[in-house]
Design a protein around this nucleic acid. Sequence first.
DNA 1: GTTCAAAGTGACACTAGTGTCACTAAAAAT
DNA 2: ATTTTTAGTGACACTAGTGTCACTTTGAAC
Lengths: 191, 191
Amino acid sequence: MARERKFTDDQLFQATKQMIIQDGYEAFTFSKLASILNVSRGSIYKYYENKDELISEFLMYEMNRFLHEFHKLDKSGDFQTQFELLIDFIFEQSNMHQVLEIIQQIPANTTKRVENNKNRLNEYHIDMYQQLQGLIDLGRKENIIKNHLPTALLLGMTFQTIAIPNHFNISQEEWIASIKEVLIHGMLKKE
Amino acid sequence: MARERKFTDDQLFQATKQMIIQDGYEAFTFSKLASILNVSRGSIYKYYENKDELISEFLMYEMNRFLHEFHKLDKSGDFQTQFELLIDFIFEQSNMHQVLEIIQQIPANTTKRVENNKNRLNEYHIDMYQQLQGLIDLGRKENIIKNHLPTALLLGMTFQTIAIPNHFNISQEEWIASIKEVLIHGMLKKE
DNA sequence: GTTCAAAGTGACACTAGTGTCACTAAAAAT
DNA sequence: ATTTTTAGTGACACTAGTGTCACTTTGAAC
């Protein structure tokens, strides 16, 4: 086995996540990462040829973790129950939103490993989207969702809610309950 | 007046906008800007000490333009009319969303001119927020908005809708109409 | 204890950006 | 035509990052 490693993949990915969530893709550098991990920059190149490769591996890792949690969600209730569980889940995994946005920023023209990861990330994304589509379809089968609203919009609006800045520090509980209320029944009182 | 300028502020801001919308704050460089404007990098330093200063001036310019348009909106109708006009307006000005996000990314510890601009941008932001708050208050006075929903959330959800990716290229018209429908009445049919 | 394979290092050459400044160019004022 | 004033230039020194590689370190296997 030879020499012991000074850092695990988990440590590396955790540090990467923190850097990316805080400052975004561009601000991520091997230098900063190396200093967080207390190793020399050169040692990271033993495992990743460059930044794009490292980040694409990180995204695979995060995506796997996320999908694993996602699949554990209870799929037995009716539409509204499952929809509310989904929103709770999205808020539990709130920084996943920032992580997923990074996928778009990986440039083309890199190594095969990166291209490979990008393709697999896309497949994962489609897989997840299909499951969510299944949830909306359930609502349609129950005949409670307005027929003319596009599925893509309903999912988009749902996911986008986690990016709304809560400047006034309204409690998480009230915040989430209000989001559910608006998405499901709208902001206006019933006449 | 001496020698003629090779580029106007408008040209400079337009090029800046394009670069920032396409690639974000970090990717903006004096080198690229200079090459778009067909001047030497050095000449831009005649007007702006550095990137932060240039971008903060650009944001002032954009914000002024945006607020000017905003103030022209018809404020005479009832809540629902004005709200729908607001959403139409937001989509007309859709890249303003990306522009506003840049404000957060200007670092601290720069020149006084930058600090000054940041403060004024904040004031503008508050000004706009108060007007929007006025709109929500109108809805409350008309007694048609559910009382328990926080104003900040309603505005947040409204503004966030422009960032929803329309991957399936649903027509702008249908997209906006659906957003209005969900925000106002929710995704579920009335029982 | 020797060997050897993998982990880690730090110096090197390179790139792409920054900010400055003495200098040149051009248009307006005299 | 000369002067003045401002616009613009490009070379210079600097910084912060990249990717590489010969070399050192370490721990397990023999």
